[in-house]
């Protein structure tokens, strides 16, 4: 599945629908589907919030592919160089007074998925995320 979305938060419901259709069609179980859905939303929102700043319209291309017991997710954007893996991660063990909302999204992505890689490309950024499927799913 490959789909292009306007680089705005208003695209999130459409992105969710596309992920749900892909996971349903590829027999990805609800647990993995939930994690892929959440990780993609976090990555997409991060790009919209931090990747632009020029006031011009942008697009984000999402590609989902199931192969060899894994779901591979590729997210391409045409924003400025932005590697979310370099951003400071939330301290999830900090007490309430010291908790800050920032950095929580990328922390969730790292923990919910199995791999995350960043590539800077001439025309933008690429994130590659991998979710390994359970043994039962791999045989389907």
């Amino acid at each position: 599945m490959e789909a292009r979305f306007p680089g705005t938060l208003e695209s999130l419901p459409l992105l969710h629908d596309a992920v749900a259709r892909f996971c349903g069609g590829q027999a990805v179980r609800p647990d993995a589907a939930f994690k892929i859905d959440l990780a993609l939303e976090e990555v997409f929102s991060n790009i919209v919030r931090h990747g632009y700043g020029d006031g011009r319209p942008h697009e984000i291309t999402v590609r989902l592919e199931r192969r060899r017991g894994r779901v591979r997710i590729q997210v391409d954007d045409d924003g400025r160089p932005f590697d979310p893996l370099l951003a400071p991660e939330a301290d999830v063990a900090a007490p309430l007074d010291e908790r800050r909302p920032g950095g929580l999204g990328i922390h969730l992505v790292r923990r919910l998925l199995d791999q995350i890689r960043y590539q800077r490309r001439p025309d933008g950024n690429r994130l590659i995320l991998v979710k390994r499927l359970g043994a039962e799913e791999r045989s389907t």
Partner: peptide, 19 residues
């Protein structure tokens, strides 16, 4: 059904207010 980091941040704000 679903909550991401932005929603968690909203709950954190409420918890801080109540505390």
């Amino acid at each position: 059904e679903y909550i991401g980091s932005a929603g968690l941040g909203a709950l954190l704000v409420l918890l801080k207010l109540v505390r």
